[in-house]
Design a protein around this nucleic acid. Sequence first.
DNA 1: GAAGTGAGCCCCG
DNA 2: CGGGGCTCACTTC
Length: 158
Amino acid sequence: METNLGVFVAVHSQVGLHYLHFVNEEESALRNVQDFYGKYDIQKGEMSPELKSKLFSHKGLKLLPLGTDFQLRVWQKLTSIPSGEKRSYKQLALELGDKKAVRAVGTAIGANPIAYLIPCHRVIQSSGKLAGFRWGLERKNALLNLERLSLHTASHVI
DNA sequence: GAAGTGAGCCCCG
DNA sequence: CGGGGCTCACTTC
């Protein structure tokens, strides 16, 4: 799917959305999906209009990422950060009950399988510096800017 | 500010 | 086991 933020690839099933990644390079993006989900019976295709509209509206879409218990806890926490706001890795580690786990939290966030809808882009360093985004810092910055600008409107970003 | 370092936790090979 | 990661706080320049 092409959007004003770039190209996305998604993996979904009857029960929900499992995976949503930015595509920088089509080949490696598809290989990634294959690595992760190759053991399942997946069918390739253009995104259906229904799925697209759900991605746009952020409604009627269950997020079902695949991960370890720890990763799921971290990703769950991310979804509680409101649009337009930011948290630090440290804050999240504290809220998860272990201030020493900052690096583990960072690693788990880096493994976020559902871009944007699980808002890993809203996490910055405690110094306030923007750092760490597998799809590029520029993209992270663009997402944050869009959210900041569209705070008082009902419009969504993707 | 920038650069270097030890601590510390989770994950993968 | 061992190393590395979307870290942090501290030191030193």
